[in-house]
Nucleic acid binder design. Structure first.
Lengths: 221, 221
DNA sequence: GTTAAATAGATAAATATTTATCAATAAAAG
DNA sequence: CTTTTATTGATAAATATTTATCTATTTAAC
């Protein structure tokens, strides 16, 4: 007889596609309750509205721990909570943003982050004209202060919205100072030591999918 | 004996993960040649620099039709061209942008798009203060003119950077006027008729992956 | 020349992810 | 109260994607 591993050690690894779909349900359900009070909703209904398969929705929700009732469906509020808890969006995480160009400014002004438990508390830039000013209500500090501030405030997430050229160096600086996760919007792959998380955000990747699909579409007939 | 399908009808469908990786190679290779003139590069080298597996790189490049030589590797310039051709980035596609808030403005100012064969030729907004002005050098027109302009210019790609609320309506308007592909940055899933492409860009999805991985990292030990 | 090394290309195996099927359950209809 | 229906939850199958193995080829070193 084989001894099963103790439950604590079985770290169930969640497929990335599932993780990426959860926020879609989350946004959808939040909109649902906002538009009109709905207590229950079924996977069938969700899948029709989001144009996917009911089985997939069921599988995905199962992972969050949400439980439904036959013939009725899931309690909307419970699913929202389940997704929040599962993703760790129930309590706020503070982050620093580095680079206040077009994209950086847009990210600073994005109101949606607070729904996802993310709070950008300050921005950093190297340009003297920007340092000391405020952008979208957030203080802009000199990148020279970045390491010290990361340490002092115990910041764990860094959002990198700098140009390609200085991106790697800025990432090194952040990691050195104790950042554990970098959300990278710079159009280069950055290297980090083992144990540090990098989430690469690449517009070009999405555009590639779009371009190819459009090309195929226009080519057929 | 089974008759194989004629070659023209065998539309080889490309896995989305592959499509998403191609721009990463593309950016990497462009940077390589920019930094110093390199004629050949091997999969091994690429995989080391990008921290992936050589086999994957080889498989991915194979799809673009690039050919390498044993012991030497691929001609850098040829791979770049192969990716461009494969994704249809070799000739420019014109696009309209709808919504000139923080994100819309950032997209208007993004210089990288021209490398990917995308040219945002005009922007549309409903706010009277913005109409008639220029943002990042691009004219802002009234959304009322959107359908007419799409038809007149034969625009095929619409970039939707509006708030969630009007997103669906704007999408409808675009499709009605002849748009074939929508790059959607609004934080809602939008529905379109069969045959129209929607590429959903969801920051929350990426953040979900980051959040979960960070939570797991901080939880261990 | 001959041999060794590095690499692409082809084929096969392994793994991850999606989709389908079936059984159990609770609500609603008759 | 019984039957029907819609639904979840569990299990299984199918498909997609990644990773490994093997072979052939080309270059460079000896």
């Amino acid at each position: 007889m084989v001894n099963p591993r103790p439950a604590e050690l079985v770290v169930k690894v969640i497929p990335e596609p599932v993780l990426r779909r959860l926020p879609v349900y989350y946004q959808y359900l939040k909109k649902i309750v906002q538009d009109r009070p709905v207590e229950y909703i079924s996977c069938t209904r969700i899948s029709e509205d989001l144009n996917t398969l009911a089985i997939q929705v069921r599988k995905d929700l199962e992972i969050t721990g949400a439980e439904g009732r036959p013939k009725v469906g899931y309690k909307v509020a419970e699913v929202i909570k389940a997704i929040e808890n599962f993703l760790g969006w129930n309590n706020t995480t503070e982050a620093y943003l580095v680079g206040t160009g077009n994209l950086g400014s847009a990210l600073l002004g994005y109101q949606g982050f607070k729904d996802y438990g993310l709070n950008i508390v300050a921005a950093f830039d190297s340009s003297p004209e920007k340092i000391g000013k405020e952008i979208r209500g957030k203080k802009v500090l000199s990148v020279k202060k970045l390491p010290e501030m990361i340490k002092r405030m115990g910041i764990k997430i860094g959002i990198l919205a700098a140009p390609a050229a200085p991106a790697q160096e800025l990432a090194n600086m952040m990691v050195e100072a104790g950042i554990k996760a970098i959300w990278n919007f710079a159009p280069v792959k950055i290297s980090v030591p083992e144990g540090i998380i990098v989430q690469h955000e690449n517009l070009a990747s999405s555009l590639a999918v779009l371009s190819k699909r459009l090309a195929l579409l226009l080519a057929e007939r």
